[in-house]
Nucleic acid binder design. Structure first.
Length: 350
RNA sequence: AGUUGCCUGUCUCC
């Protein structure tokens, strides 16, 4: 046991986390008790590597061995399970928490509610939330922010705004994120009158739209090609303290590309560079997709080549984008070549 | 300290 724990610590410190998790399995089978702090570090590391399955297993061994993981580690594992849509496992773990001496907190509940919501299990999410209220949990802003979209979806924007007002009466003040969620939802439905109503409401509460509010509007307007309105908002952003961000430019570039207006998209690219707003990998992925679609294959390959070895190196989506573009033009040889580059650069295909 | 809520990019489905 002692020897194994020494090995465990060595593996953890050498970042050989999968090996370490196998060792934990072996130790568990031999009824050996793993060193708990190492377990915690291992769990967190495995989550960072997206190996939730392993992390959950180590957590289980730790608990069975009498260890009590801290709330943050638990929440991270539950969050990881939720991201993988393993809601059932997340709920099982939630139930084990209290038994293991580490009762769940708001963050645990919010994580689970969010997961139910994302999976379309709306009734389950609301039921779960009501259970919490019944148990005496005070209303939490983040929970409301997740659920307010449901009110909007089922009862309309006016009711949603009423709920926000009720929240404030209960001392739970909606913030800009809460309002942005509603702006986003309204925009997705193309209900710009509703979005405007939300903006008026946040203004009347002494808040201001932020860059994300504007970006949300821009994204929706872009998908519908409302260029005049887009121009107007972009101008407002430049005049206020909510300067366009890299996301703003990415939205505009993407919108123009989708409409085949690559030249105008490139103008925005130049504008962002000249304003010291650094393009990121999303910017390049967007442009690469457009170049490929327009048949500007050499240009695309050139950009790809330039990107390799910069701080903004091509990722999985970059390669997928270019390979897909080449394949759709029937250029299978070139596609395979790029695939080879991808492997060489250590990117694992999906 | 580190874990939960708002905006952008590829493919598939629509």
């Amino acid at each position: 046991e002692e020897t194994n724990n020494d090995i465990l610590q060595t593996l953890c410190s050498k970042a050989r986390l999968v090996d370490a998790s196998r060792l934990i399995d072996v130790m568990a089978r031999r009824n050996q008790i793993p060193h708990f702090p190492s377990c915690t570090n291992l769990i967190r590391g495995l989550i960072r590597m997206d190996r939730i399955d392993k992390a959950a297993k180590v957590l289980k061994v730790m608990v069975m061995s009498g260890g009590v993981p801290d709330i943050i580690t638990y929440n991270m594992v539950i969050g990881g399970l939720c991201k993988k849509a393993l809601l059932r496992s997340a709920i099982d773990l939630l139930e084990e928490m209290s038994l293991s001496g580490c009762p769940p907190d708001v963050i645990t509940y919010n994580t689970i509610i969010r997961c139910m919501f994302d999976n379309g299990n709306f009734d389950q999410a609301v039921g779960f939330w009501k259970d919490q209220l019944r148990k005496g949990c005070p209303p939490y802003l983040i929970t409301y922010t997740v659920l307010i979209e449901l009110v909007c979806r089922h009862c309309g924007i006016l009711r949603a705004i009423e709920v926000l007002e009720d929240m404030a009466i209960e001392g739970c003040y909606p913030d800009i994120i809460t309002y942005n969620s509603l702006v986003n939802f309204s925009c997705k439905l193309g209900k710009y009158e509703d979005a405007a109503l939300v903006v008026y409401n946040l203004l009347s509460r002494g808040m201001e739209p932020n860059a994300i509010t504007y970006n949300t509007l821009l994204h929706s307007l872009c998908s519908r090609g409302y260029w005049d309105e887009i121009d107007e908002i972009f101008t407002i952003m430049k005049e206020t303290s909510h300067t366009p961000t890299v996301v703003t430019f990415n939205i505009l570039i993407n919108g123009l590309c989708k409409y085949g207006l690559l030249d105008r998209a490139i103008n925005f690219y130049n504008e962002m560079v000249s304003q010291n707003c650094l393009p990121d990998i999303v910017t390049y992925n967007t442009l690469l997709g457009a170049l490929s679609k327009e048949g500007m294959i050499d240009e695309a390959l050139q950009v790809l080549h330039i990107l390799s070895g910069t701080s903004c190196s091509p990722g999985l989506i970059t390669y997928n984008t270019v390979i897909d573009g080449l394949a759709k033009k029937g250029l299978m040889e070139k596609a395979k070549e790029v695939y080879g580059q991808m492997i060489e650069n250590g990117i694992i295909p999906d």
